[in-house]
Amino acid sequence: MKGVGPKILKLLNDLGIYTFAQIAAWTPAQIAWIEGKLDFKGRVTRENWVDQAKTLSGQA
Rank of each mutant, 00 (worst) to 15 (best):
D51A: 15
Y18E: 12
A21N: 06
K2V: 13
K41N: 00
K54P: 11
K10P: 04
R43A: 00
A29Q: 15
L56M: 15
A53E: 11
W33Q: 10
D39G: 01
T27M: 10
Q52H: 14
L11H: 13
K2A: 14
E35G: 03
F20I: 02
T55E: 15
T55F: 15
K10Y: 14
I8Y: 12
L15V: 07
Y18K: 10
R43N: 00
I8S: 08
K41G: 00
I23Q: 04
K2S: 15
V4Y: 08
Y18W: 11
G42V: 00
E35F: 08
F40P: 00
N48G: 07
G58W: 12
N13L: 12
A60D: 11
A32P: 07
Q30G: 05
A25P: 02
G3A: 06
L12M: 09
L11S: 12
G42F: 00
S57I: 09
K7P: 08
R46E: 01
I23W: 07
V4Q: 05
L56R: 15
F20G: 01
I8Q: 11
K10G: 08
L12W: 09
F20H: 07
G36A: 02
Y18H: 11
E47D: 06
A25Q: 11
A29E: 15
L15Q: 07
A24R: 09
E35V: 03
A21G: 02
K7D: 12
G16N: 04
F20K: 08
I34C: 09
A60T: 09
V4G: 01
D39W: 00
K54G: 11
K37Q: 09
G42R: 00
L11P: 02
W33K: 10
E47Q: 06
N48L: 08
K54W: 14
F20P: 00
Q30K: 12
E47L: 05
N13F: 10
K7R: 14
Q59G: 03
I8C: 06
K37V: 03
D14P: 05
M1K: 06
R46M: 02
K54S: 13
G5L: 06
L15C: 05
K2C: 12
L9E: 15
W33S: 05
L12P: 01
A60K: 15
E35N: 04
D14H: 07
K41F: 01
G5P: 06
L9V: 12
G5R: 05
K7N: 09
A53R: 10
A53K: 13
M1A: 12
V4F: 08
T19R: 07
L11R: 13
E35I: 03
L15M: 07
N13M: 14
I34L: 13
I8V: 14
F20A: 09
L38M: 02
K41L: 00
Q59T: 11
I23F: 09
P6K: 13
N48F: 08
L12Q: 05
I34W: 12
T19E: 03
L12F: 08
D39A: 04
T45K: 00
L38I: 04
T27D: 09
L38W: 03
A32R: 10
S57K: 13
L11E: 15
G58V: 09
T19D: 02
D14F: 10
W49D: 04
Q59C: 04
A24C: 03
D51F: 14
D39N: 01
D51H: 13
G36K: 03
E35M: 04
